[in-house]
Computed example of a mutant assay.
Amino acid sequence: MAKEMTGGCQCGRIRYVVTIHDDDAYLCHCRMCQRATGGVSIAFKGVTRGDLRWSPYEPERYRSSPIAQRGFCRECGTPLTYEGDGADHLDLTVGSFDDPSAFRPLEHSGAESWHPEWLDTRGLPASRTEDNERIATMWRTAVGKLPD
């Protein structure tokens, strides 16, 4: 099932094309990922480094621990990668793909910091951006449309 997929950061400065061999992904709940993203977990897709091409820029990277670095966009701050030292693969953030719906989570990593109450939220009320008149008006005034 090899296919090429695209993605990038929020501001569009960093783009990538990667060959994907399956739709497997995972959620990481470790404290490092929580701190790096400001969220309770992050969704990752593991890829082989040789299957990934950055354009026009590679992400900036910072050493997030003694065993790994993380890639991000210096302009908008989008987290893009988790890169373990010496590995021939890396993890791309699922949310940075142009079509994140192509993936399905198969496992939880870092379960010692898991907050299960944040995962199954199907029973909570939901609203769409266009239903929040104040926010929708701000978007339309700023850029003429709602965000993608």
Score class of each variant (00 low, 15 high):
residue 43 A to D: 06
residue 146 L to F: 10
residue 69 Q to W: 07
residue 62 Y to N: 01
residue 137 T to S: 15
residue 52 L to C: 06
residue 39 G to W: 01
residue 74 R to I: 08
residue 136 A to P: 08
residue 8 G to H: 02
residue 17 V to G: 02
residue 15 R to G: 09
residue 137 T to A: 15
residue 70 R to W: 07
residue 126 A to V: 12
residue 58 E to S: 13
residue 54 W to F: 14
residue 136 A to L: 09
residue 10 Q to C: 11
residue 27 L to A: 12
residue 27 L to W: 02
residue 83 E to K: 03
residue 12 G to T: 06
residue 61 R to N: 10
residue 8 G to I: 04
residue 119 L to Y: 13
residue 42 I to P: 01
residue 119 L to D: 15
residue 29 H to S: 11
residue 21 H to S: 14
residue 22 D to E: 13
residue 46 G to S: 14
residue 123 G to I: 04
residue 48 T to F: 01
residue 114 W to P: 00
residue 37 T to K: 09
residue 1 M to K: 11
residue 2 A to H: 08
residue 85 D to T: 11
residue 78 T to F: 05
residue 46 G to I: 09
residue 42 I to Y: 04
residue 61 R to G: 00
residue 134 R to Y: 06
residue 37 T to V: 01
residue 103 F to P: 05
residue 118 W to P: 00
residue 100 P to T: 01
residue 76 C to S: 07
residue 39 G to T: 05
residue 140 R to M: 10
residue 48 T to W: 05
residue 140 R to K: 15
residue 51 D to R: 02
residue 82 Y to K: 06
residue 13 R to E: 15
residue 122 R to Y: 08
residue 58 E to L: 08
residue 138 M to C: 12
residue 96 S to E: 02
residue 45 K to A: 09
residue 31 R to Q: 13
residue 95 G to D: 01
residue 76 C to E: 08
residue 50 G to C: 07
residue 50 G to S: 15
residue 29 H to T: 05
residue 26 Y to L: 07
residue 62 Y to D: 01
residue 147 P to G: 10
residue 125 P to T: 04
residue 87 A to W: 00
residue 53 R to F: 00
residue 7 G to W: 03
residue 132 N to L: 14
residue 96 S to D: 05
residue 45 K to M: 06
residue 93 T to N: 05
residue 64 S to V: 03
residue 83 E to G: 03
residue 14 I to L: 11
residue 70 R to K: 13
residue 5 M to G: 00
residue 112 E to C: 07
residue 120 D to C: 05
residue 109 S to A: 12
residue 82 Y to N: 09
residue 106 L to H: 14
residue 12 G to Y: 05
residue 119 L to W: 04
residue 100 P to N: 06
residue 34 Q to H: 06
residue 41 S to G: 05
residue 90 L to N: 05
residue 125 P to W: 10
residue 6 T to V: 00
residue 83 E to I: 11
residue 129 T to P: 00
residue 147 P to H: 09
residue 102 A to P: 02
residue 114 W to Y: 13
residue 140 R to T: 11
residue 26 Y to Q: 01
residue 40 V to S: 14
residue 37 T to L: 09
residue 44 F to S: 03
residue 11 C to S: 08
residue 134 R to K: 14
residue 148 D to T: 11
residue 126 A to C: 12
residue 38 G to L: 10
residue 100 P to A: 07
residue 88 D to M: 04
residue 6 T to G: 03
residue 126 A to F: 12
residue 45 K to G: 02
residue 126 A to T: 15
residue 100 P to G: 05
residue 67 I to Y: 02
residue 44 F to Q: 07
residue 16 Y to V: 04
residue 7 G to N: 02
residue 89 H to L: 00
residue 81 T to K: 06
residue 125 P to V: 06
residue 25 A to Y: 02
residue 144 G to W: 03
residue 127 S to E: 13
residue 146 L to S: 09
